[in-house]
Design a protein around this nucleic acid. Structure first.
Length: 808
RNA sequence: GCCGGUGUGUUGGAAUUGGUAGACGAGGCGGACUCAAAAUCCGUUGGGCUUAUCCCCCGUGUGGGUUCGAGUCCCACCACCGGCACCA
């Protein structure tokens, strides 16, 4: 039978467009299942083969869930604000809104071409004012509660994008997006206090079903560490507060180091003997980019502050104070107590600057290297009241002592920094704030939302680091919502991560004018049951959206503290040679070409069959044929199948086994082995012959992977007419363990652990009976000549192992 | 440097979690059909030894170990990939 995939797919897509079998029904009594994929950025290039992998996987999962009786929400939308569109618009002199509209149209067409079961009535577009009205609304709530604030601070500045970046967007000292150098720049920026949620963002990971890699990466990024804060007195009269994870080593603190930006340095400067040297060092440190700072981390630099000293509180000793850029102003208190005997960096610095090194934990040789082991193997020495204790005992003992003296307390610190939330670009959500000379920053009243992005003539980034919006005088100049006096709008826009931080909520209730999501819809659909996305979003989108969701939970908008119950991740699709697909290499595969040549069902099936879902795999145009052949063979069964309702006796066991395998493998994201099981089953059908009843099982299991062909086969075999509905509306087939096994079983016979023969035994035969069969085997008989049996191991229905020795 | 992951045929990848390594595909080889090609179908395909699809030996990055039995568990090492990186 000719497999006319183009006609079949067109036919069924039109049918689905009409009958809407993928519509999610809020409030339906069936159990709900919310499957989510990361919504795409509608780029000008259209879909590439990287997209269908996660999309198809979740499509398969949700299609199976529907057949299992769930009310499924599987939505799609577009994360459409952002730089590539803006840059394209600038280059081609087309408004970004038009570019976005065209790109979304193209993406939509391609997604429909692949036959995904999205609920197309719930499409969300982050650039739609009806959508970003609520993005702005959430920002205002954060502002009201002190979570959004404007601060002047050194920020990451991309020299090419001419825009501020969040810490998460700086990779190895360069811009994540364009790879250009990132420098430090003092700028006044909107910030979101994500650090206030750091503890909860770590703690709540425990109750979630995320793949372990994601949890680990989030924990690393948040970087929680417990220790103590200790106050040192200085000879200048000021107190210096430090954070340390090793309060036990306080007796070994022989000097202190402040970050070059530390406030006390400025205060002390006039009184210092070497003020010029200190100023020079500060200037040098300020001029370094992130990249330089990390690249130069091998060689410690610094300057001693001459004329002021600190006092070690445990022994009253006066110790020198240095500034050095290995101490970061943004972590802890920006100052450390240096314990060169037990910290590698301090040790290196002490050697270079000739500081005293005191051993306070026995076990190493502090003249050769720092001894940093933090377990019970080290015993405290030279440490007064701590002497003789293990490190583990000494930490709480010292913390208690500090608390008693009122000069310290236990303290938790995080690596996570607040989120730099403003961008000096055009194509983003306007930040709904007004700056009034009298009232300061005033939020735009909620009734005036959305603050719509105005049409500008030029949306090019400006060299002075201001947003293109700042050039629009009539938009910028406004009235203060509070006092009515003249005021100016904020001209920076939000980062791309804003719209995607809550989009999954909008899907639940996408057309609501009154609120971002109605409580009924949120209570019914939330949280997302299964979210699949890329590893590259673990410390960006995933962290940010968890933060926003927790905030919305705190203000009563959502009813769960976490947005996503389960998170999985897919590997990348690489080019033929195992290299990353890129335009410059010319190895980009366009899904349209595959669909034209082999059909959408083959494309879908193959991208699931290609390999382990979590790992990167290289695309092979050759190998696609195998998937096409399989579908050809499936279709041919429609003609080959004999009449017959139930499963044929010959195929019954293999069908039940396949159902079990496919059912379990889809839930475990092992689509490749699920498909292999279907292929094996079809091979058996060809070898044994099959009935329509057998083919029915195939159609139902094929339906999530190749929905068009499955419906066509369902119709051709007459099941459609008989049931009055589509295959996808049929219940998922059930398996029966008892029917999975054959009456007879081939088992392995080993002698001394080596495979020597196989024998066929009746299923579940008792050990004695099995051994009888084994001993009757010609080959085994030969091997046993002149030997006696020392031991026999029988594993039921699997193998027999005979241990022999020469008979005397 | 720290954290995590992965090493299996020519190739993408399987292996019921300690029980017949290489399922299922791709490619190759041989054959059928065809004027021919494509498509399709059948057979075969880890290496070595061999007249032999008999037997035997070797084989899951390397070297040891535990076990009747190890791709799977333990110890040491090597290579590659990903994340973090002066976080006190």
């Amino acid at each position: 039978m000719k497999y006319d995939f183009a006609a079949i797919e067109k036919k069924w897509q039109a049918h689905w467009e009409e009958s809407k079998p993928y519509a999610a029904v809020t409030g339906d009594p069936r159990p709900k299942f919310y499957g989510l994929i990361e919504f795409p950025y509608p780029s000008g290039q259209g879909l590439h083969v990287g997209h269908p992998r996660p999309f198809t996987a979740m499509d398969v999962i949700t299609r199976k869930k529907r057949m299992e009786g769930y009310n499924v929400l599987f939505p799609i939308g577009f994360d459409a604000f952002g730089l590539p569109t803006e840059n394209y618009a600038i280059k081609n002199h087309i408004h970004p809104a038009i570019v976005t509209k065209n790109n979304i149209a193209r993406f939509t067409e391609q997604l429909k071409m692949l036959g995904y079961g999205f609920d197309w009535d719930r499409v969300v577009d982050t650039t739609d004012p009806a959508y970003y009205k609520w993005t702005q609304w959430i920002f205002l709530q954060m502002f009201r509660r002190g979570l959004a604030y404007k601060a002047t601070m050194p920020v990451n500045w991309c020299t090419s994008c001419k825009c501020v970046l969040a810490n998460e967007e700086v990779v190895e000292g360069v811009c994540e997006r364009c790879g250009s150098a990132v420098i430090r720049k003092e700028k006044s920026q909107w910030m979101l206090r994500i650090t206030k949620y750091a503890q909860r963002l770590v703690d709540d990971l425990d109750g979630l079903d995320y793949i372990e890699r994601v949890k680990i990466q989030q924990r690393n990024w948040i970087g929680r560490s417990t220790g103590a804060e200790v106050t040192f007195q200085s000879t200048a009269g000021d107190e210096i507060v430090v954070f340390t994870t090793r309060p036990d080593t306080l007796f070994g603190a022989t000097y202190m180091v402040l970050s070059p930006e530390h406030a006390l340095v400025k205060k002390w400067l006039p009184a210092l003997e070497n003020a010029e040297a200190v100023t020079a060092y500060q200037a040098e440190a300020a001029g370094k980019s992130d990249l330089e700072r990390t690249e130069l981390n091998k060689d410690k630099t610094g300057v001693e502050l001459k004329g002021v000293r600190a006092v070690n509180p445990v022994n009253g000793k006066e110790i020198p104070i240095f500034i050095s850029d290995y101490v970061l102003s943004t972590y802890g208190t920006g100052a450390i107590m240096a314990v060169p005997g037990h910290d590698d960096r301090d040790w290196e610095f002490a050697k270079k600057f000739g500081c005293e090194i005191v051993e306070v934990v026995a076990g190493g040789d502090v003249e050769k290297e720092a001894y940093t082991v933090k377990d019970d193997s080290g015993i405290m020495v030279n440490s007064g009241f701590l002497n003789g204790k293990t490190v583990r005992e000494a930490i709480p003992a010292m913390t208690a002592w500090l608390e008693e003296k009122g000069i310290g307390r236990s303290q938790v610190n995080f690596k996570l920094r607040d989120w730099v939330f403003s961008r000096q670009r055009y194509w983003g959500e306007p930040i709904p704030m007004v700056s009034c000379p009298d009232c300061g920053w005033v939020p735009v009243p909620e009734s005036e939302l959305p603050v719509v992005l105005p049409n500008v003539e030029s949306y090019e980034p400006t060299d002075d680091g201001e947003s293109p919006l700042s050039k629009m005088a009539d938009w910028v100049n406004t009235r203060c919502p509070q006092c009515g006096g003249p005021a100016k709008r904020e001209t920076d826009t939000m980062p791309q991560w804003a719209g995607s931080s809550w989009y999954f909520l909008r899907y639940m209730d996408p057309h609501d004018d009154a609120f971002l999501v109605s409580p009924e819809a949120e209570r019914y659909w939330g949280p997302v049951d299964w979210y699949n996305g890329g590893m590259e979003h673990t410390t960006l989108h995933l962290l940010y959206s968890r933060f926003w969701h927790k905030f919305l939970y705190d203000i009563g908008v959502v009813h769960t503290p976490e947005p996503y119950f389960k998170r999985t991740s897919h590997g990348m699709i690489l080019g033929e040679g195992g290299e990353k697909m890129s335009k410059s290499r010319g190895n980009v595969v366009n899904p349209n070409d595959i669909v034209d040549q082999y059909g959408a069902d083959t494309m879908r099936l193959h991208i699931m069959f290609i390999g382990d879902f979590e790992k990167a795999v290289s695309w092979s145009n050759e190998a696609v044929k195998g998937s096409k052949r399989f579908l050809d063979r499936c279709l041919n069964l429609v003609e080959l199948a004999k009449e017959g309702e139930g499963y044929s006796p010959k195929n019954e066991a293999v069908i039940h086994r396949a159902i079990k395998k496919v059912t379990e493998d889809i839930d475990a994201l092992k689509m490749n082995t699920a498909i292999a099981a279907l292929m094996s089953m079809v091979n058996e059908f060809y070898a044994n012959g099959c009935t329509k009843g057998d083919v029915k099982a195939l159609i139902l299991m094929l339906s999530p992977f190749a929905p068009h062909l499955a419906e066509e086969m369902w119709e051709l075999t007459g099941f459609s007419a008989a049931s009055g509905h589509m295959a996808m509306q049929e219940p998922w087939p059930a398996f029966d363990e008892a029917k999975m096994v054959e009456k007879e079983k081939e088992i392995a016979v080993q002698v001394g652990g080596k495979l020597r023969a196989t024998v066929v035994i009746p299923l579940d035969a008792p050990d004695e009976a099995v051994l009888e069969i084994v001993y009757a085997n010609e080959k085994i008989k030969k091997l046993m000549e002149g030997m006696s049996v020392v031991k026999t191991i029988v594993v039921r229905n699997k193998l027999v192992n005979l241990i022999l020795k020469p008979a005397k």
